[in-house]
Nucleic acid binder design. Structure first.
Lengths: 136, 136
DNA sequence: CTTGACCTTGGTGTGTACTCTAAGGTTTAT
DNA sequence: ATAAACCTTAGAGTACACACCAAGGTCAAG
């Protein structure tokens, strides 16, 4: 299968596939005589793995680690895989916590403001940002 | 006040201050004879505004908008300010929702895996990423 | 046999918020 | 007088995950 058809099947761009190849996430096993990439069943499976991993929030770098483990499963332990997963989960949790603080602060600000059409001279959002030191 | 002292007082780097200046967030009013930036009380206030806005999650671009409103308060309405705030809040909420989905999926994966020292040949995390199509 | 759709490589551009470097001028302390 | 510590500019580099482009080769249909 050439790159275009392969990309279509997966709903990604050919650029993406070449990018993944350059970054050692997925390399087609063979090339045609003309030098075209030739993707097969194995490539399809691997791409699906990558896309699923992306869907749960892993970065491409993390996915590369997962793939290296997957390639040599018997040389790695369940522990390693679970560790990666938990590390990622905790990182995501931290980011959620930070964004939740933002959301909270923004809600407080928004609630303070009348939102009317009058000039913003006394807008409580602006004055709060000018005056208050807290708001972490 | 020269840039180094000013930066120290605020806990930011001199690079950051020059970066903000280049992007029209904060420009010191005057320069010394030698061409050094000279920061005053007004700059301090404005930097505090910027840092607070950053603390609630606004991007530098959004902060620039807020500053433009702040400079000409009577030409803008409360409505505009509240709109910016609410737009940002909703954006943050979307990102939180996405990350929460990630967190959920990662938790499910982690819970499935024993995490033991045995080889990863049958690791449920890997097999789940290989096999299952759902996991959105 | 030529047109159009595909493929190749290598390189640049995007957004965000800085950080770092090079090459040089200024100020302050000894 | 000279070294340390500051300042200046312009420009490049970082992370991340691609998208886009140019210049050219290849393949199937009409």
């Amino acid at each position: 299968m050439k790159i275009g058809e392969f990309a279509n099947q997966l709903g990604v761009s050919t650029d993406t596939l070449r990018y993944y190849e350059k970054h050692n996430l997925l390399t087609p096993l063979t090339r045609t005589e003309a030098g075209y990439r030739d993707y097969g069943e194995a490539s399809l499976k691997q791409m699906k793995f990558i896309l699923r991993a992306k869907n749960v929030g892993f970065s491409l770098l993390e996915i590369k680690e997962l793939l290296q483990i997957k390639f040599k499963k018997h040389q790695h332990s369940c522990h390693e895989v679970k560790d990666l997963t938990i590390q990622k989960r905790d990182l995501v949790a931290e980011r959620i916590a930070e964004l939740t603080r933002f959301h909270q602060s923004l809600s407080v600000l928004a609630d303070k403001c009348c939102g009317g059409q009058e000039p913003a001279d006394n807008c409580s959002i602006l004055t709060t940002l000018e005056d208050i030191d807290g708001l972490t």
